[in-house]
Design a protein around this nucleic acid. Structure first.
Lengths: 200, 200
DNA sequence: ACAATTATTGAATGCTTATTCAAAAATAAA
DNA sequence: TTTATTTTTGAATAAGCATTCAATAATTGT
């Protein structure tokens, strides 16, 4: 009963997420959001609450997408250390346009986390999930004998997570693809090779 | 001739730099700057130009400090690979208060570089200087036989730079010191040990 | 057809922002 | 002491900001 919505909630949320991703929280104005989401202020406030609530929902949504994507790669059947390699090579092969955008989670850690407890909780949760996925993947690798049984896989999981952050910052600073590939090669050299292919 | 300045230019610039470092560019208001720098708007505009010019000068100043500090460590006499280790252990042992502030250069890469050409030029210059310091340090290590002569030291330099970014993001996300140490251990495992001390 | 309910609209709100400027204060030269 | 020069002050400005709300439009149940 009553008038029905003219817009799709998920679609407009995705639009908002993209604006925040591209411009950051503070640099995104309600005017930007109104234009990109294609709805009027009243509809935004009625549906998502204020700007901050909309941002929190945006990073939660982004977090879900990025987490499920990471899990899909790291939990894929077959060699777990090959899956970790795929994870990093996928990062290097991102579409050029999205490179300067980095990752909304990492961007939020840098821009907001220290002063915004609510945002910090969300992004720390996402980071913990992905680090945990690395850990489980390494555990499996260890069980299969791909990784030495006395390796500190907890440390390795933290390292891969941190290395991901590093790549996402590096790719925002005009680094050429070749350089990104070089970095990934070194990151992965901390893992024993499954098959001895090509490089150095 | 004429009235003389009542404040010290460098001191107020340092104050401004600290505010930008802590809060970011967009989240820092002129009111914040007026309070922290301890001078009135007219004096700021008269001395530094507008907010953006003051920011550019702030990141240039920060860049000089951080670059000279990195060079001091990496170019120190003695073993170059030991110097690289010191560089990373120094990062882990930063005062706790400054951890959530990360690094103004990395913060700027994430917040502004993609949309602010002038800021991008400054920070990319700083990053290039530090990566180059890593390269020269690795070259010296190679000449001394501390690093294998067929190692790709250009790739390693990019890797150490990217790893630094990663650590500076990780430390902004409430990561405990132990975890930071673990990560550094793995980062440094890509370097051959000079002396075989403790950990693997 | 009417009443009740709910979404949409966009102008209006009041607050914050960066920036300017005229007046006042301090200094140095004449 | 007066004049010229330069800095300081802080109120004033105008633009931009997030947010609200009364009016309007669309829909459903009676």
């Amino acid at each position: 009963m009553g008038r029905q919505f003219e817009f799709n909630r998920d679609e407009t949320l995705t639009k908002a997420m993209e604006v925040f991703w591209q411009k950051g929280y503070k640099a995104t104005s309600m005017k930007d959001l109104i234009e990109e989401m294609g709805i009027q202020p009243g509809s935004i406030y009625n549906t998502f609450g204020d700007k901050h609530s909309l941002f929190i929902e945006s990073i939660k949504h982004y977090g879900q997408v990025v987490t499920s994507n990471a899990l899909k790669i790291l939990n894929a059947p077959g060699s777990p250390s090959e899956n970790i390699k795929k994870f990093f090579y996928e990062m290097v092969n991102r579409p050029a346009g999205k490179k300067s955008m980095g990752c909304l989670i990492v961007n939020t850690v840098v821009e907001l986390a220290p002063h915004d407890k609510e945002a910090a909780e969300v992004v720390n949760g996402v980071l913990k999930s992905i680090e945990n996925a690395f850990f489980k993947c390494l555990k499996k690798a260890q069980d299969l004998g791909e990784v030495s049984s006395d390796a500190n896989i907890s440390a390795l999981a933290s390292y891969f997570s941190s290395s991901t952050h590093g790549l996402l910052v590096t790719c925002k600073s005009e680094a050429p693809k070749k350089q990104m590939q070089d970095i990934v090669e070194v990151i992965l050299s901390t893992l024993p090779k499954v098959e001895s292919r090509s490089s150095r």
